[in-house]
Design a binder for these strands. Sequence first.
DNA 1: TTTAAATGTTATAAAAATAGGACAACTGTT
DNA 2: AACAGTTGTCCTATTTTTATAACATTTAAA
Lengths: 305, 305
Amino acid sequence: MAHKAVLCIIHFYVYFMHRVKRFTMISNKTKDSTMNDTHANSVGGTKSHRIYLLLKDAILSGRLAPGRKLPGELKLAEQYGVSRVTVRRAMQALDEAGLVARKPGLGTVVLEQPLDATVMTASVANLLPNMVKMSKASRVRLLEFCYVKPPEPVRESLGLRDGERVQRSIRVRMADDKPFSYLVTHVPEYIALHYNEADLSQTPLFALLERSGVKVDHAAQTISATLATHEVAEALDVSVGSPLIALTRVVYDEEGRGVEHLDALYRPDRYRIQIDLNRTGDEAARYWEPMAPEPHHRERESQEA
Amino acid sequence: MAHKAVLCIIHFYVYFMHRVKRFTMISNKTKDSTMNDTHANSVGGTKSHRIYLLLKDAILSGRLAPGRKLPGELKLAEQYGVSRVTVRRAMQALDEAGLVARKPGLGTVVLEQPLDATVMTASVANLLPNMVKMSKASRVRLLEFCYVKPPEPVRESLGLRDGERVQRSIRVRMADDKPFSYLVTHVPEYIALHYNEADLSQTPLFALLERSGVKVDHAAQTISATLATHEVAEALDVSVGSPLIALTRVVYDEEGRGVEHLDALYRPDRYRIQIDLNRTGDEAARYWEPMAPEPHHRERESQEA
DNA sequence: TTTAAATGTTATAAAAATAGGACAACTGTT
DNA sequence: AACAGTTGTCCTATTTTTATAACATTTAAA
């Protein structure tokens, strides 16, 4: 009972803490008892895989421009504090992934990345207007749809009484058959009863809420970053340990009741969050003000939950 | 339908572990070299570490409530399809991380997690008003201050002519002597000449710009996620490969000229970005509107560049 | 042609992770 | 007192990952 309850682990992952480490050395040793920090390691994996991830991220993010030559294996080995074999594995993985081209005598150069993996940019201002465009351009895979007792943080943020249940759904959204977001939503049961599984796999949750008579009023969003764990990695088709944008949004109705709790994970190579700011205020108290939505939409903006 | 079901099983292999045992194997080899996607699923990481991650995340996200007793090592080993030694490592890591308490004869219980009170929340709306508070509460370490030829992306976003130089600075901002952000700024030379190294190590760049007569007008921000590299990892006191919030901001003056290019990396365990939204617009075209700055500030808000 | 630098290849050894088992010590319950 | 369930400790064997070294091959430049 208690056991089984424990076993009922829902795998949606959001990271909070990460290991603090003195060295930039890539190390597998977890036995560093000289660590005064309590936070345990965040990065898993073999050294070669970690190096692969680093370089891959550098390439995909544009820090390593296409055409640029990487340092030699020996140099990289010294730089990362590992042997050449280890670096080599990472490089070969990059090669197989099509991120770099290697030639004996020449070196390793970063390849031009096919831009068709277009990065979607979601402006916080223009969240909703593109809903139609979005639902046409993207498909949803519903991984879970069930009613459960809410995890404590969710219960708290939604302001639910102890014992109230929520409807949880896990969806993966795809554009061009490529997954880019992993969405975990919790909705109070009394609201969620207005729609069913089929609705959710086709209609944005947002529309369902309004259809259910919910008077959406405001929301609080927090943006962070995390690493892909096994389940998420599989769903988003990335490797474990890849960086992900983590967004938590709690939506409230006009009476201040929480009506939706969203935990979203985004692939940064396919999705970004954009915020445009205006400088306003008088001399004494100037500040940034987020831009109001504009009539023209960006090419691939999106709204999804 | 069938494939959806399979995906559910794969994804929740822990959830249904006690029922679907053949999918519970944690395996190191995903040798699918038939991957045409650039993101090979070669799962990195030791099994023990992956299990550690699973449990840690379950605890931190509240799915495993404090006080709850975990299944025994043997049971976990069977359920994860690994040996007891492997489970043990994960459990010991959890123990060292202070997430659980273990006692012979009793078992392993989840500990109450001291909520990291040091997480700063930066509201995009309230960026500037807290500058004073911020500069008192945080210190800056200036790592670099030089004039260079701008990297191509920077040159482009600032709208500089080919050959124009920029002043680059790298700063690390700390709160309570703990680093939380790594800031790389590029400012056109003709603006940067109005201040010097000493200024920058004490005064927010923002204030320096305005002091230099720049009429700041608007900015474009993009938020993403990335992995910590050597330099950054060392500066932020995290391990290489840790996830970081990546923010790029380009600031423009009233004439639309780029006056500052900021690349910021934040430790997600110490810094989050918060955006509060209001639902506005008429029936036909409703949308989210970022909240205007509020007179009351949150406790640990910050502004820094 | 020579030289330097890079990747490709091969081999061996060391280190780490994992599996599987056995047994002791501790705790609460029957 | 016996027992079932738990963690703690020890052991050996196997597999995987990493380190180290040596040498070959390719390429561009001096």
